[in-house]
């Protein structure tokens, strides 16, 4: 009898095991069936520019962005110049996502009648989950061509050209805060004076702080490594004094548009200009009010 009841117990348990395994509630079954995912960070920045400089963001595949950038004159030009609002410098650009990881763009600016073109490649994406990557990394290659005939030193196409390489390293720390580093190398085939260097190195620092769902505060600074600083700064050097560009802006997002309103001491809206040739200074209100407007068109069917 004892052995029989043991057998009964044994048999019962044998069938209880598969029974328990299969009759688990739908909740846990659903949870178990969900494939493990990799979550990519999105919207590290709201726009393809932090303020003046590129952000890690690109247009996705088959998306075309039309950008209009505008900078007024310097605030310190007083009431005669309506604190800068009488003047305007614009930059028009078309930028297109060939794939999700490659963006190309062309642009034209009234600043030195510059034409520019660039390609931006995404090399690393920030992700968590199955695959973990703490940062995003992109590489920017850009070229600028000065069309202005005011400077007679520019004798040929070679002398008018400059090339920009930039590595963009960004991290979205949380929903509200993103930080980006942008080491930049600019080669200019011709510079205004002997004191200016053909090769210019710069380190950019940009950040975005979300103020509300659709508004964020953006700050951007480029430190430019220049030699002969003392020579450049001496009043008799005859050269223009250049400053490091500092820009503070607000991104406002409305559907397919992003408005960026900013204060910046840079007048140019491309790397060769705002990193290489910023002449305004925050200390004497040599600051421009400006805005960027972006409209995105989709060509995905």
């Amino acid at each position: 009898m004892k052995s029989k009841s043991f057998l009964l117990f044994f048999l019962t348990s044998l069938f209880l095991i598969p029974f328990q395994a299969k009759s688990q509630d739908l909740d846990s079954l659903l949870a178990k069936s969900a494939e493990p995912q990799t979550v990519y960070a999105t919207a590290t920045f709201k726009s393809t520019r932090v303020v003046n400089g590129h952000s890690i963001e690109r247009m996705k595949k088959n998306q075309l962005e039309f950008r209009v950038s505008h900078r007024f004159g310097e605030l310190n030009t007083g009431s005669y110049n309506f604190w800068g609002l009488d003047q305007g410098t614009i930059h028009l650009a078309l930028e297109y996502g060939l794939t999700d990881w490659l963006e190309v763009g062309i642009g034209r600016s009234t600043y030195e009648k510059t034409v520019d073109g660039f390609g931006k490649i995404s090399l690393l994406r920030q992700s968590s989950g199955v695959s973990n990557m703490p940062i995003q990394l992109s590489y920017l290659l850009s070229t600028e061509y000065i069309g202005s005939k005011l400077n007679s030193n520019y004798t040929n196409g070679y002398s008018r050209s400059s090339y920009i390489q930039q590595i963009l390293i960004a991290r979205k720390f949380n929903d509200n805060l993103s930080i980006q580093l942008a080491p930049t190398y600019i080669h200019r085939n011709l510079v205004p004076t002997e004191l200016d260097k053909n090769d210019l190195f710069s380190m950019g620092l940009g950040g975005r702080l979300k103020l509300s769902k659709r508004i964020s505060l953006n700050i951007e600074y480029f430190y430019v490594y220049r030699a002969n600083e003392s020579a450049l700064n001496s009043p008799n050097s005859g050269t223009t004094k250049y400053y490091n560009p500092l820009s503070i802006g607000v991104d406002i997002e409305t559907g397919g548009h992003v408005f960026q309103i900013m204060l910046t001491n840079a007048l140019a809206m491309r790397e060769g200009g705002f990193i290489g040739k910023t002449t305004g200074s925050w200390s004497n209100a040599g600051v421009h009010l400006g805005f960027n407007i972006s409209r995105v068109f989709s060509f995905t069917k």
Binding site: K61, Q63, G97, D175, E253, V296, S298, T300
Partner: peptide, 18 residues
């Protein structure tokens, strides 16, 4: 279809990170 719409859906409306 629009990448920007997808971003807005996730960031502003459905708030996928949260």
């Amino acid at each position: 279809r629009r990448a920007l719409m997808e971003e807005h859906f996730n960031e502003n409306y459905i708030e996928s990170p949260k």
